[in-house]
Write a protein that binds this DNA or RNA. Structure first.
Length: 329
DNA sequence: GAGACGGCGCGTATATTCGG
DNA sequence: CCGAATATACGCGCCGTCTC
C-alpha cells in the first residue's frame, strides 16, 4: 500500500547516479588526494549501490512500520499504550476473531427476528417472494414496503372490527342501561360514562364483546344481577410479552386481567362481564398512550386483576412463565 | 543474458524493559 | 544499579522477476 506508493517515487534511477558518479567520485578523490583508479571507481560504485539499497530498505521498513501503526489504530487499545509489532499482530488477529463472532451473532439474531416477525404477522405471498429472494441480510426496501403494507392492512382490519364492536356495544349498552336502571341507577352513570370515554378500541374488545354476547343470552338473565362493587380502576403494571409464534391467530390480542377473587363469588356472570369490560376499557385507555407501535406487537397484555378468560381458552398465551419461544436473546 | 529492482533473511548495533 | 531479555532500526547479501 503505502510502501508501493513510496516505491513509485523512488530515488533517481541508478543511471542518474552513474551519470554523475564519475564527477562525484572524481571530486571526492581530488579532495581526499586519492588517485582515481579503476578499483576506486568500482568501490565507489558499489558503495553507491549499497547506499541506494539501504535507502530502499529503510523505506521498506518505514512502510512496514506504517502498516503496523495503521493496524494499531484499528484495534482497541488505550492511548499511549505501547504495543510491539508482535503484540499488534496478535491483538489484530484477536480483534478480527471477535468481530467475526459478533457478525455471526448478529446474523443469527437478524434471522431470528425475521422469523418472529414472519410468524407474528403472517406470511403473505409477496413477503414469501421477498424472503425467497433474500435469505440473508438486506433488501430493506422490500421489507419496509411489506411492513407498511401489513400495517395498512391491519389498520383497516382494526377499523372494521372497531365499527362492528361499536354497533354491538351500543345495542348491548341499551339493554344494560335499561336493566341497570331498575337495579343500580347510581352505578349506571359511572359505567356509562366510562364506556363513553372510550374513543379508540383495539382488537381485543371484539373478543370481550363476543364473550359478553354469549353470557348475555337468555340463559344468563339480567334479573339475577346482584349488587356489585363498582368497577375498580385497574392501575396495575402492564407487562407486554410477545405472543408465541404458534398462535393460530397472529393478529390476535388477548387482554387478561386479574383481580381479587373475593369479589368474584358474589356477582353474576353478566355483572362480571360488565366489570371486565369497564376494566378492559380503562386498561386500553391507559395503554394506548404508549402508541400504536405497541399494538403492532400482537402482544398479550397481562395485568394483575381478574382473569377474563377466552371462552375457547386457547389463547392463554399470556403465561409469561410458559415456553417462551419468542424470547429474544 | 546482463543489469536493475524489489523483497526477504540474517547479523549487528542501539534502545528499552524488567527482574534481582 | 546492573545485567539479561526483548524490541527496533539498519546494513548487507542473496534470490527471483522484469526490462532492455
Amino acid at each position: 500500500m503505502e510502501y508501493f506508493m513510496v516505491s513509485a517515487q523512488k530515488v533517481p534511477p541508478l543511471q542518474h547516479f552513474r551519470k554523475t558518479e564519475k564527477e562525484v567520485i572524481g571530486g571526492l578523490c581530488s579532495l581526499a588526494n586519492i588517485p582515481l583508479t579503476p578499483e576506486t571507481a568500482r568501490d565507489q560504485e558499489r558503495r553507491i549501490r549499497r547506499e541506494i539499497a539501504n535507502s530502499n530498505e529503510r523505506r521498506r521498513m518505514q512502510s512496514i512500520n506504517a502498516g503496523f501503526q495503521s493496524l494499531k489504530t484499528l484495534i482497541p487499545h488505550s492511548d499511549g499504550e505501547k504495543l510491539s509489532k508482535a503484540a499488534i499482530l496478535q491483538q489484530t488477529a484477536e480483534y478480527i476473531f471477535t468481530l467475526e463472532q459478533e457478525k455471526t451473532r448478529l446474523l443469527q439474531q437478524n434471522s431470528q427476528l425475521k422469523r418472529i416477525i414472519q410468524e407474528l404477522s403472517g406470511s403473505s405471498p409477496k413477503r414469501r417472494r421477498a424472503e425467497e429472494k433474500d435469505e440473508g441480510i438486506g433488501s430493506p426496501d422490500i421489507l419496509e414496503e411489506e411492513k407498511t403494507e401489513d400495517l395498512r392492512r391491519e389498520m383497516i382490519e382494526l377499523r372494521q372490527q372497531l365499527e362492528k364492536e361499536r354497533t354491538v356495544r351500543m345495542m348491548l349498552e341499551d339493554q344494560m342501561r335499561s336493566l341497570d336502571a331498575q337495579l343500580y341507577p347510581e352505578k349506571l352513570k359511572a359505567i356509562a360514562q366510562q364506556v363513553q370515554e372510550q374513543q379508540v378500541q383495539t382488537q381485543s374488545l371484539v373478543r370481550l364483546q363476543k364473550q359478553l354476547e354469549r353470557d348475555l343470552t337468555p340463559a344468563h338473565s339480567p334479573q339475577v344481577l346482584a349488587p356489585a362493587t363498582p368497577p375498580a380502576p385497574t392501575h396495575h403494571a402492564t407487562v407486554i410479552v410477545p405472543a408465541p409464534a404458534q398462535t393460530p391467530q397472529p393478529h390476535h390480542v388477548t387482554v387478561v386481567t386479574m383481580g381479587p377473587t373475593s369479589v368474584i363469588n358474589s356477582v353474576s356472570t353478566s355483572r362480571q362481564n360488565l366489570d371486565t369490560i369497564v376494566q378492559a376499557i380503562q386498561h386500553i385507555e391507559g395503554t394506548q398512550g404508549k402508541g400504536f407501535e405497541e399494538e403492532q406487537r400482537r402482544a398479550v397484555i397481562v395485568s394483575s386483576g381478574r382473569i377474563l378468560s377466552d371462552a375457547a381458552g386457547s389463547d392463554t398465551a399470556s403465561n409469561s412463565d410458559g415456553p417462551d419461544d419468542c424470547s429474544l436473546p
